Amino acid sequence: MVRAVLFDMDGVLVDTEWFYNRRRCAYLEEHGFVFDEIPDLSGSNETAIWEFFVPDDPVRREELRLGYRDYQKAHPVPYGELLNQDTKPVMEELHGRGVLQAIASSSYRSLINELVEIADVANVLDYTVSGHECSAFKPDPEIYLRAMGQLGVEPGECLVIEDSPLGIEAGKRSGARVLALKPHEGVHLDQSGADMVIDSLWDILDELG
C-alpha cells in the first residue's frame, strides 16, 4: 500500500526545465558563448551544469556561476505561468486520502518555498527538502531517503514522481517505485529507467493500491 508520494519539483510540479535552459543560454550569450542550439540540461544539478559549459577553467566557471545568481534574480521564474495546473488538485486529493506528501528537489530552498506559496499547497504538504541541504545531489538517493525518514515510511510504501534520468535513478536507488511524468513539449528526457511513464499527475491515483 502506498503511504507517501514524493515529488520532484522542476518538470513535475512546474514546467521550468525549458525556461531554465533558455535563460541560462541567454546569460552565457552575454558573456561570449555562441549556441547553434540550446543544450538540454534538464534534470542536471548546478555543479554538473557549469562543468558542462566550462570544463577546463575552474576560475572562469566560478565567475560565471556567481554572476548567474544575479542574472536569475533579474530574470525570475514565472512560476504562476509555468505551474502544472494539476499540482494543487492532485495534492489535495492525495491529502484527502491520507497519503503523506513531500517535495524533494535539487532546487534551492527559496525556490521550493516560492513554488509552494504560489501553488498554495503548504497545507497538504508534510515535508520539503532541497538537494542543497543534502551531502550529495541526485542521482544519489539521499534526498529521497531523508524524506522517507522524516515521514516515517519505508521505500516500498512510496511513489517517487520524477521526470529526469538523474531523478529517476535517485528514486530507484532509494528503493521506491518511480513514476516519470512525460516531459513538456520540446524537452527530451530518457525516462526508460522509471517503472512507468505517466501522462498526468492524476495517473498517480491509479497507482495507490
Rank of each mutant, 00 (worst) to 15 (best):
V124T: 08
L111N: 08
R65W: 03
H75V: 00
V77N: 02
D120W: 14
H132N: 15
G156R: 11
W50I: 01
Y144L: 11
N45D: 15
V99N: 09
V116N: 03
E93Y: 06
Q85G: 02
Q85C: 09
I161M: 00
E133H: 08
H95K: 15
E169V: 14
V116C: 05
E46M: 00
R97S: 04
S105P: 06
A147E: 01
G152E: 12
P139T: 10
P165T: 10
D57W: 07
A102Y: 00
E169D: 14
A102V: 06
R61C: 12
E81S: 13
E62G: 02
A122T: 14
F53H: 11
R60T: 11
E154K: 14
G131W: 00
G171H: 13
G149L: 02
Y71T: 10
I143V: 13
A136N: 08
Y127N: 14
V121K: 05
L166G: 01
M148H: 05
N84E: 10
V77L: 08
M148C: 02
R69G: 04
I118F: 02
E142F: 13
M148S: 01
D163H: 04
T87K: 05
S107Y: 00
L82S: 14
V153H: 04
Y79I: 03
V90M: 07
L100P: 03
P55A: 12
E157M: 08
I112R: 06
L159G: 05
P78F: 03
A122P: 05
R65P: 06
H75C: 01
L125W: 00
N84Q: 13
E157S: 04
K88A: 15
K138G: 06
V160W: 01
I161K: 00
E114H: 15
T87D: 02
F137A: 10
P89A: 10
G98W: 09
E114L: 11
A170I: 09
Y108H: 14
D120Y: 03
S164D: 12
N113M: 15
W50P: 09
P76A: 09
D70A: 08
S164L: 11
Y68T: 04
K138E: 02
L111R: 11
Q85W: 04
P165H: 11
A102H: 01
P76K: 02
G131H: 04
E162F: 02
S130G: 03
V116L: 02
A104C: 13
R61Y: 12
V129E: 02
D163R: 08
M148G: 04
Q72G: 08
I49K: 10
D57N: 15
Y71A: 09
Y127D: 06
